[in-house]
Design a protein around this nucleic acid. Sequence first.
DNA 1: CTAATCGGTTAACACACGTTAACACTGGTT
DNA 2: AACCAGTGTTAACGTGTGTTAACCGATTAG
Lengths: 226, 226
Amino acid sequence: MPKTTILLAEDEPALGQIIKESLETRDFNVILCDNGEKAFEKYQSETPEILVLDVMMPKKDGFTLAKDIRAIDDTIPIIFLTAKSQTQDVVEGFTIGGNDYLKKPFSMEELIVRINNLLNRTQAQKTSEVLKIGDYTFDFPKQTLQFNAEEKSQLTHREAHLLFHLIKNKNQVLERSIILNKLWGNDDFFSARSMDVFITKLRKKLSKDDTIQIINVRGFGYKLIG
Amino acid sequence: MPKTTILLAEDEPALGQIIKESLETRDFNVILCDNGEKAFEKYQSETPEILVLDVMMPKKDGFTLAKDIRAIDDTIPIIFLTAKSQTQDVVEGFTIGGNDYLKKPFSMEELIVRINNLLNRTQAQKTSEVLKIGDYTFDFPKQTLQFNAEEKSQLTHREAHLLFHLIKNKNQVLERSIILNKLWGNDDFFSARSMDVFITKLRKKLSKDDTIQIINVRGFGYKLIG
DNA sequence: CTAATCGGTTAACACACGTTAACACTGGTT
DNA sequence: AACCAGTGTTAACGTGTGTTAACCGATTAG
């Protein structure tokens, strides 16, 4: 999974560096700018997934910057960092529309929670992980498998993950060791036998559509065709 | 109004006493401990509203102490007192979930301003914790759950806390041990079985909207989807 | 051809989790 | 003091999931 890119605009160097480093330990990719104009340039060149903007900045303040970016992109989540002197109603005007704000001083935990909230919300609306394979519909997050308009059947956690990887690599050979390491954390004898059992289970659950098959490639892995 | 209780952990006796006395003149109730272990005991027995922790202490340092307390309570404000002015230490403090930090030497005025900031802020944010999940509206502070426009049903304390964490981690797997340590304070057999009961209760109360589900991930935890 | 290896299938098993009810504890009411 | 309602824990029993074992056929190396 590629890292999520955050554009951070904060003019106070020490604080900006602290936030940047903390977010990087949480596996985000952070671009730090110390004024609004630079931030606008970076927004266009780097296409970040989310913006964290200090309100008071030289050259171009956070609200103006947000307005300019909103004119181009009206879905990207924005979090404002405001000093305590900002009046309540100015701030609240901007909280409508997928935005959020944080009063300084704030804890990193709070910021991270809000970033994740906004990312999840927009992600859930963008790409729900519903995959189609033959006459089946597979909902990975809900772990359900539906044949045509028949009743949904519930898959177990392991079944769902295994099927997910097979579908993602449809019509290609998926190596045994790769699956084993991803789902079992190792590729020893017992895990391998366990996986065989799950392949059997999936074959059974996918047997209603005979155009799709899980084919074994001896010594290498499996290939889902359909 | 009852006095606000501050837990102060500071190993240098002279400094600890000065801070304690000046805070008491500002009408705070101060518990002073000279090491991290004592502080943890006092935290449990006295339930303070805010923590002021020296980073370098014998027995248990401030960061470790904060980590242990955060496992139980993730809302209590924490202020770190640090002699080391290096950025890395500050970052570590923030990522644990600390709310603020002060570099030594600092003025009492600074400390008091920050204490008041954090107390006001967390109070203000606690009252607005209204979360949406599917067709339900969950009011965490009021412990109510409402389906569409139907009448609100009252949740118990445990139910509300468990649901809160599930919603905060919506569409991600929430580890059993994390929930158990946060809500029960341990993760032994009996607490685990107790939690199972509450999961059952929540599933029942959330059953009116069948797009949302609490899915179990065997051996890891639960995932709220919707 | 034979032995060795890999994978397929089924069943047995251990244990994590689900569900319900009984129980203990608390705080309030009469 | 006796009672009651509400809350959370413990107990008992049932179900589901994933691992292991056993047995088998298919494929391939020697």
